[in-house]
């Protein structure tokens, strides 16, 4: 097993008075793919969003507990959330490229970090698009609107955009749920490539996808972490009855 990249300790989250995550504790290893599965409303996406403090944006949310990334508690009050998010990138369920050109989408991150030199930007854009395996498809229309691309291409643009700021961790919130099977396959292939360099955490409602792409799988149910283990164990020999029921489709 690789080093522990993310260490979560007793994390609870409330929307107002409603307890949405209950005392979650888990370790996520470096440079592997960890999948969160569970029925909708189980808290898996909410949990994912606690890892780059995206829930800070929502009124009414209170969080207790600790999340360590590289041994630093990201809920410490001295934490710089902006820089945290540079290290922990995020891909959303609905692809959300900006209404700008492909090039400007990728260059957005580097630009906000103060890089304005054209040659450097060009290089980052090319490298990121290549890493996201979409360079060949868009290299001739870098200056067309990103919104003119297909849904699957848009999602890979979003991945490239996230890679351009050089994160350590990439959070993916059901990245392929809105895509057709061919685009989904491309995204999954890409995830496989990316785990050489990045720690990837993916939320999915699709159990086959979790089984195909991940090294570790965690099952959530009603705000609880039911079970977390190596993916092959979760899918072949789960420790808990609840996991078995879910895997075999008896609920959820």
């Amino acid at each position: 097993m690789n080093n522990i990249k993310v260490k979560v300790k007793d994390l609870s989250l409330r929307y107002g008075t409603n307890l949405a995550l209950k005392n979650i504790t888990m370790d996520i290893p470096e440079k592997m793919v960890t999948a969160f599965i569970g029925p909708s409303g189980c808290g898996k996406s909410t949990f994912l969003r606690t890892l780059n403090r995206m829930n800070d944006l929502i009124d009414n949310v209170t969080i207790e507990g600790e999340v360590y990334i590289d041994n630093i508690n990201i809920y410490d009050k001295n934490i710089d959330v902006v820089n945290l998010r540079k290290k922990v990138g995020m891909i959303f369920q609905k692809s959300n490229p900006f209404a700008k050109s492909v090039y400007e989408n990728i260059a957005f991150g580097p630009r906000i970090n103060g890089i304005s030199q054209k040659s450097v930007l060009d290089e980052i854009v090319e490298r990121s698009l290549k890493q996201a395996a979409i360079w060949d498809e868009v290299k001739d229309r870098l200056f067309n609107s990103a919104l003119s691309l297909s849904g699957g291409q848009q999602q890979r643009i979003c991945i490239a955009r996230s890679l351009a700021v050089n994160p350590d961790i990439i959070l993916m919130d059901e990245p392929a749920s809105a895509l057709d099977p061919i685009s989904t396959a491309k995204i999954e292939e890409l995830i496989h490539e990316l785990k050489q360099d990045y720690t990837i955490i993916i939320v999915t409602h699709n159990m086959q996808q979790a089984a195909r792409t991940s090294d570790l799988t965690a099952l959530f149910y009603m705000g609880d972490l039911v079970e977390m283990n190596k993916t092959e164990i979760i899918f072949s020999n789960p420790a808990k009855k609840q996991t078995e029921d879910y895997i075999s489709g008896r609920f959820g």
């Binding site: 902006v82 998010r85 906000i112 979003c158 996230s162």
Partner: peptide, 19 residues
């Protein structure tokens, strides 16, 4: 989603508003 995309890239709130 547009604001989240920007913030998730490490843009500050003001950068998100401006850009």
């Amino acid at each position: 989603e547009m604001r989240e995309a920007s913030l998730a890239l490490g843009a500050t709130k003001w950068q998100t508003i401006r850009k």
